[in-house]
Simulated assay, not measured.
Amino acid sequence: MKTAGGFYRNNPMAGMPCAAVLAPLLTASSPQVIVARMSPFFESPAYLEAVARLEYALVRRDRVAVLTGPLGSGKSTLLDKWTSKLRREGSIVPYLQTPGTFEQDFLWELAIQLKADVGLATTPPELWFQIRERLTTYALEERPVVIVVDHVEEMAPETADLLLTLARLHCGATTGGSLILSVDSVNLRSFDVRLLKMADLKIELEAWSCEDVARFTQTYQDAFPDSRLTLDDAAIQAVSQHSEGLPRVISQILDLSRLAVEASDSQSVTPETVEAIREELL
């Protein structure tokens, strides 16, 4: 990963901050850390459409629904916001954001979120028994259960077997449960074909259009009224082009642009600035 200081150090006339300004903000995994802390949330049309389709899957009591999209398209953000909403409405929503590599990790996390009576020493068979007991209890109480698993492509094959069993026994119209799986589109071909065949619905989270970027830019500027960040139509088009419409990258570009503007005498972001920042993020 490059640091944003490289371009500015080698181009002192660019009117942008040097490494000393951005280095403390760009740590090992960095630009993402900045985005998570600083960028406002934006309900894009793509986000609203995906949420509507997820809600439709629950109304139909679909057994399995798959949410897919490129890395950085906002799948995890969508699931985080959506699962919080479902919980406020009374649903039981285990949300496994980083599936365990091993069977016991996955079972333990799922059991804990289902409020099962388990501990660190509970064996996999005991975990599985407790999970099934809780799911059966919720079904009898007619409480909807939505099991959400993000980054499914990271799971081990034995964990995929567990998901298949969950879907077959505890999801669908007869039980009221649903299994929502999220996977990067580049990994969809290597995704477990058995789970794909069980999916009643596949939802593609689309990239933002240039108009979406313009609306998010306004939302961003409203969130930081004291900032001098200004983007004209050309700069917005550059953000859209260099980010490929991916919300994570758009946020990174705007975050770094704002820091750059605040640390310089410039009051606007140019397409050249956007291009330089994007190159440094690659």
Score class of each variant (00 low, 15 high):
Asn187Phe: 11
Asn187Gly: 05
Leu188Asn: 00
Leu188Met: 04
Arg189His: 08
Ser190Gly: 11
Ser190Cys: 08
Ser190Arg: 15
Ser190Phe: 11
Ser190Asn: 09
Phe191Thr: 03
Phe191Asn: 01
Phe191Gln: 01
Val193Ser: 15
Val193Gly: 14
Arg194Ser: 00
Leu195Pro: 01
Leu195Asp: 01
Leu196Asp: 08
Leu196Cys: 09
Leu196Gln: 15
Leu196Phe: 12
Met198Phe: 12
Met198Gly: 09
Ala199Ser: 01
Ala199Cys: 01
Ala199Gln: 04
Ala199Arg: 02
Asp200Ser: 11
Asp200Glu: 04
Leu201Asp: 02
Lys202Pro: 08
Lys202Gln: 13
Ile203Ala: 05
Ile203Met: 06
Ile203Gln: 01
Leu205Thr: 02
Glu206His: 15
Ala207Ile: 05
Trp208Gly: 03
Trp208Leu: 10
Trp208Arg: 04
Trp208Ala: 03
Ser209Lys: 10
Ser209Ile: 10
Ser209Ala: 08
Cys210Glu: 13
Glu211Val: 14
Glu211Ala: 15
Glu211Tyr: 13
Asp212His: 05
Asp212Ala: 03
Ala214Asp: 04
Ala214Trp: 10
Ala214Pro: 04
Ala214Thr: 07
Ala214Met: 08
Ala214Ser: 08
Ala214Val: 11
Arg215Phe: 10
Phe216Asp: 01
Phe216Ile: 04
Phe216Cys: 00
Thr217His: 06
Thr217Asp: 04
Gln218Arg: 15
Gln218Thr: 14
Thr219Gly: 05
Thr219His: 06
Tyr220Phe: 07
Tyr220Gln: 01
Tyr220Ser: 02
Gln221Val: 13
Gln221Lys: 12
Asp222Cys: 08
Asp222Met: 08
Ala223Val: 03
Phe224Cys: 05
Phe224Ala: 01
Ser227Met: 12
Ser227Pro: 11
Arg228Lys: 12
Arg228His: 04
Leu229Gly: 03
Leu229Trp: 12
